[in-house]
Amino acid sequence: MTDVKTDLRRRSLARRDLVTHDEAHAAAAIVAARGVALVEQIAAKAGFEAPIVSVYWPIRSELNTRPLIDALANKGYRVALPVMHKVKHPLIFRDFTPGDDLVKGPFGLSEPAEDKPASDPDILFSPLAAFDRKGFRLGYGGGIYDATLAELRPKKRVTAIGVAYACQETDNVPTEPHDQRLDYLLTERELILPV
C-alpha cells in the first residue's frame, strides 16, 4: 500500500508542478469565489451564525488559498490557520487576520504565533496531493488531516473541503481504515460532491 501511495503522490505532485503561473493565478481567483460561496451555503444550511473557517497557508506548488483567506475575511468570517506541532497528530487552529505576521513553525510552515487564540473550525479547507470522486484524499504522508478530522468529527459537525487543481484527480485513492472522507472537493474547474 505504501509503495502505491508513494507512486501516486509522486505522479500527482509532478502534474501539479507543471501548472503555469498564469494558470495558478486564475485558479486561485476561481477557487476564492467558489470557496466563499460554498462557505455561505454550508453556513446557511447548518444554521451557523459565524462559522470558524480554517484555510491552509499555501506552500510549494499548492493551489494558492491566500485570495480565499482574504475574501473570507472581507465577508466577516473568522479565519483560522492550521498549526502543525507533530506528525500523525491533530492540527491546532489559530486565528488569523490578513496582515497578521506569521512565524515559522517547527516544520518550516508559516503559522500564526502562539499568542493568537486557538479554536476548532466548523469548516476546514485541506490541501492534498491527489483526490478521487469518492471524497478520498492522498496527503503528504504525515496523516495529519486524517488525525485532525478523526479528533474533531466526534466533537462537532465539521465540513471538510479538499482544495486542488483538477490535474490532481485520480480514479481511485488507495484507502486505509483511518482515512477520512472529504465532504467536498474544490478545483478550478468544478465543485465536486463526493458520491
Score class of each variant (00 low, 15 high):
Phe131Gly: 02
Leu38Met: 12
Leu91Thr: 13
Thr2Ile: 11
Ile52Ser: 06
Thr148Pro: 00
Pro51Trp: 12
Pro194Met: 01
Asp171Gly: 12
Ala43Thr: 04
Ala129Lys: 03
Tyr77Lys: 01
Ala50Asp: 14
Arg10Met: 13
Glu111Thr: 08
Ala73Arg: 12
Gly141Thr: 08
Asp120Trp: 08
Pro106Trp: 07
Ile59Ser: 14
Arg34Asp: 08
His21Pro: 07
Asp101Ser: 02
Glu190Leu: 06
Lys155Met: 05
Asn172Ala: 05
Lys86Cys: 05
Leu185Thr: 00
Asp179Ser: 13
Asp132Pro: 04
Asp3Trp: 07
Asp122Ser: 11
Ala150Phe: 01
Met1His: 12
Lys156His: 12
Gly35Cys: 10
Val173Phe: 00
Leu149Phe: 05
Ala160Phe: 01
Ala113Cys: 13
Asn74Gln: 13
Gly76Phe: 11
Tyr165Asn: 07
Lys5Phe: 09
Pro82Cys: 00
His178Gly: 11
Arg133Ala: 10
Arg94Pro: 05
Ala129Gly: 11
Asp132Ser: 07
Thr97Met: 05
Thr175Asn: 01
Ala32Ile: 08
Asp146His: 10
Glu23Val: 06
Pro82Asp: 03
Ile59Cys: 15
Thr6Leu: 12
Ala33Gly: 08
Ser110Asn: 13
His89Leu: 11
Phe48Ile: 15
Ala147Trp: 02
Gly47Gln: 15
Tyr56Asp: 00
Arg15Leu: 12
Gly108Asp: 09
Gln180Arg: 08
His25Lys: 15
Asp100Ser: 05
Ile161Tyr: 04
Asp22Met: 10
Pro121Phe: 02
Ala73Phe: 08
Ser54Thr: 04
Lys86Thr: 02
Thr65Trp: 00
Phe136Gly: 01
Gly162Thr: 05
Ile161Ala: 02
Ile59Met: 15
Arg34Ser: 04
Ile144Leu: 06
Ala43Pro: 03
Val103Ala: 09
Asp146Tyr: 10
Lys45Ser: 12
Val163Thr: 03
Ile92Glu: 12
Pro98Phe: 07
Glu114Tyr: 14
Glu169Cys: 12
Leu102Trp: 03
Leu109Trp: 08
Leu102Thr: 02
Asp7Gln: 15
Asp3Arg: 10
Leu182Thr: 04
Ile161His: 03
Asn74Lys: 14
Gly143His: 07
Glu151Lys: 06
Asp120Phe: 11
Leu8Val: 10
Ala113Gln: 07
Thr2Gly: 11
Ile144Ser: 00
Leu109Gly: 08
Asn172Gln: 09
Ala46Arg: 15
Ser119Cys: 14
Ser61Pro: 10
Pro127Trp: 05
Gly108Asn: 10
Gly35Tyr: 00
Pro51Asp: 10
Tyr145Trp: 06
Phe107Trp: 10
Phe125Gln: 01
Ser54Pro: 04
Arg9Gly: 07
Val163Ile: 13
Thr6Met: 12
